[in-house]
């Protein structure tokens, strides 16, 4: 109980964590509620073309007269969802492979290590290029899965190293001597003592997935039938927002991504300070 109380105390005291969390919460709430205030279908041609922000169209309109605010609101939602899904998948695979590899060791470890190394080197982008070339219709689920499937290796490596060091500790020995199965020991002894670490891995995977998805969408390899912030930027570039100086179309999507991912990174540093007593500032 005391330990929890202390953690929460330090968590609230930590400026980085507070700032990061506030920004993240703002965008999460925006992703939930902003689409409710969107008065237009993001795809529909509803206003004058290439119009700067006005009371009618808060974020202005696109080259074709679509409402930028509506696109932004829906795009934000999808970007967060893909980030969350991709980040979760990446974290889960990383945990699974890292824990098994670190706990079991031996040949299995060697094989998993080899796979980890290979996937680590393969650029996500390259794989998605090939997939995208064949899948005519791509949903955000497919995208999330592939982002998660290519993002796990560093997490697996880090978690493997942690597991190795935990495995050497006494309490795991005790558990082992009491004859419990490996799976049980991993789940009941090792994973919980790494909770804080795993949480931080997830936060980084979350941020990474958002950036990855945005880049892929921008290149034109993203979901084919939904709106994301990356896709907004892709459209803006394809339809001459730059040449026409339509800053209201160019700025919001990237600014939101930067803010969200930046908030996640800063949160991560803050969490590190909270969980790691050595770093707690005095």
């Amino acid at each position: 109980m005391g330990a929890w109380y202390e953690l929460i105390y330090f968590a609230f005291r930590n400026v980085k964590l507070r700032i990061g969390l506030t920004i993240l919460l703002f965008f999460v709430l925006a992703a939930i509620f902003a689409p409710l205030f969107a008065r237009y279908d993001p795809n529909a041609y509803v206003g004058p073309a290439a119009h700067p922000p006005s009371p009618e169209h808060w974020f202005g309109t696109t080259t074709f007269g679509q409402d930028v605010y509506s696109q932004f609101a829906h795009g934000l939602r999808l970007t967060l969802i893909v980030g969350l899904l991709g980040g979760s998948i990446g974290t889960l695979i990383g945990i699974l492979i890292g824990l098994i590899s670190g706990y079991r060791g031996g040949l299995l470890d060697e094989i998993l290590n080899m796979i980890t190394n290979i996937v680590l080197i393969l650029p996500t982008l390259a794989i998605l290029i090939i997939i995208a070339a064949y899948l005519t219709v791509r949903g955000f689920l497919v995208q999330s899965v592939f982002i998660g499937l290519t993002a796990w290796p560093w997490a697996a490596r880090a978690i493997r190293a942690q597991t190795l060091s935990l495995r050497a500790r006494e309490f795991v020995d005790l558990a082992r001597m009491s004859g419990r199965s490996s799976m049980k020991i991993v789940l009941t002894e090792i994973a919980p003592s790494m909770m804080s670490y795993l949480f931080m891995v997830f936060i980084l995977q979350f941020g990474g997935a958002i950036l990855n998805a945005a880049t892929l969408d921008f290149i034109g390899l993203g979901p084919t039938q939904a709106f994301s912030l990356g896709l907004m930027m892709n459209n803006a570039v394809l339809w001459a927002a730059l040449e026409l100086g339509m800053w209201w179309w160019l700025i919001p999507p990237g600014a939101a991504i930067t803010a969200i991912v930046g908030a996640l990174y800063v949160m991560n540093v803050g969490l590190d300070e909270v969980f790691n007593p050595k770093l707690r500032e005095l």
């Binding site: 921008f218 730059l242 160019l250 990174y265």
Partner: peptide, 18 residues
């Protein structure tokens, strides 16, 4: 540094170009 590394490449490119 945190802002820069959180920035999507294409967005910084767009902002600079604009």
């Amino acid at each position: 540094g945190y802002i820069l590394t959180a920035t999507p490449y294409m967005w910084l490119a767009l902002i600079l170009a604009w």
